[in-house]
Amino acid sequence: MVPIGHYLVLAGTLFAIGAAGVVSRRNAIVALMSIEIMLNAAILAFLAFARLHGDLRGHAMAFFVMAVAAAEAAVGLAIVVAVFRRRATVNLDELRELKG
């Protein structure tokens, strides 16, 4: 059996990869995907801890997160589409109408 620690390390790594992705990638879609990775890292951590504690709370949380992530992704993609229609780009560096 794989020890719990390994799962946590994996979760932490995924979280770091996701966070790095959001900060560094300039494509909105990629950033969105990175955020999804972060959420999934959290789910993994929840499940690992649930296993560690031997209770079901973490499992329930995983379902909540999946539902929320779906809603978030739906709205996020809709926004990306709206931006693309209007500006024909989803590159964050090119979206510079707002500044001052």
């Binding site: 955020i35 709370r57 949380m61």
Partner: peptide, 26 residues
């Protein structure tokens, strides 16, 4: 554009918060 920037930052924050929740749970 505002919505997109808001969304990316907000979702990023949610991700951080959620991971924090996971650690607290642990």
């Amino acid at each position: 554009e505002a919505a997109l920037k808001y969304f990316l930052n907000g979702a990023f924050a949610s991700g951080i918060l959620l991971f924090g929740v996971a650690l607290c749970y642990g």
